[in-house]
Computed example of a mutant assay.
Amino acid sequence: MDYQVLENEELIVRVLNKGAEISSIQSKKDGTEYIWQADRNYWSRHAPILFPIVGKLKGDQYQLDGETYHMSQHGFARDRDFLVTNHSLIH
């Protein structure tokens, strides 16, 4: 799985490219994991980004300015690939 790693002196955070989903937040001090580890026997996602909607649209479609558009449950962000293009440190 492709992911980005962000870390500081206290935490290591792993963010999946698919859906920009946080897959791990782990303490450097004691190794505590704070994110569900996606046991496929129960639920295979960690913490998906639901954008631009949360939920399901009737017929998986919506209308805007007289046009009809398709949108799957919870929007499109959780199933798209994201890449970091720029980052900086905040002090």
Score class of each variant (00 low, 15 high):
H46P: 04
T68Q: 07
W36Q: 03
D30E: 08
G66Q: 01
Q73T: 15
S27R: 13
E10H: 05
R40W: 02
D39Q: 03
I12R: 03
G55P: 14
L50A: 04
N17T: 04
I25E: 01
S44A: 05
L50F: 05
D65A: 12
E67T: 07
K56H: 12
N8Y: 02
K18E: 09
L57M: 00
L50G: 05
K28A: 06
S23V: 12
H70F: 01
E33G: 12
Y69D: 02
H70M: 02
Q26R: 14
P48W: 07
K58W: 12
L50S: 10
L6S: 01
K28T: 09
R45V: 01
G55N: 11
Q26I: 12
E10W: 07
T32E: 15
V13E: 15
Y69S: 00
K29Q: 14
D60H: 14
K29H: 10
L6N: 09
T32P: 01
Y62G: 09
P48H: 08
E7P: 01
R14H: 15
G55W: 13
I53Q: 03
K58G: 08
I25S: 10
E33P: 11
Y62H: 09
A38T: 06
E9I: 04
G19F: 13
L64D: 00
H70Q: 07
Y42N: 04
W36Y: 14
D30I: 10
D60C: 12
G59C: 05
I22K: 01
Y69E: 07
G31N: 10
S72Y: 07
K18L: 09
T32W: 05
N41C: 09
E67L: 11
W43N: 06
D65T: 05
Q73M: 08
R40C: 04
A38N: 11
D30T: 02
Y69L: 01
E10R: 01
Y62K: 05
S27L: 08
N41Q: 10
K18N: 12
I22Q: 04
G19D: 11
Y69M: 05
T68C: 08
S72C: 14
H70D: 00
E67H: 13
Y34P: 03
K58I: 13
G19Y: 00
T68L: 07
M71N: 07
F51R: 14
Y62L: 10
I22E: 03
S27F: 07
I25G: 09
I12Y: 02
E10A: 14
Q73L: 04
S23F: 11
E9T: 14
Q63I: 06
F51C: 12
G19K: 02
L64C: 14
L16W: 10
L11H: 04
A38S: 08
K28Y: 12
I53M: 10
S72R: 08
L16K: 13
I35G: 02
F51I: 04
H70N: 01
S72M: 09
Q26H: 11
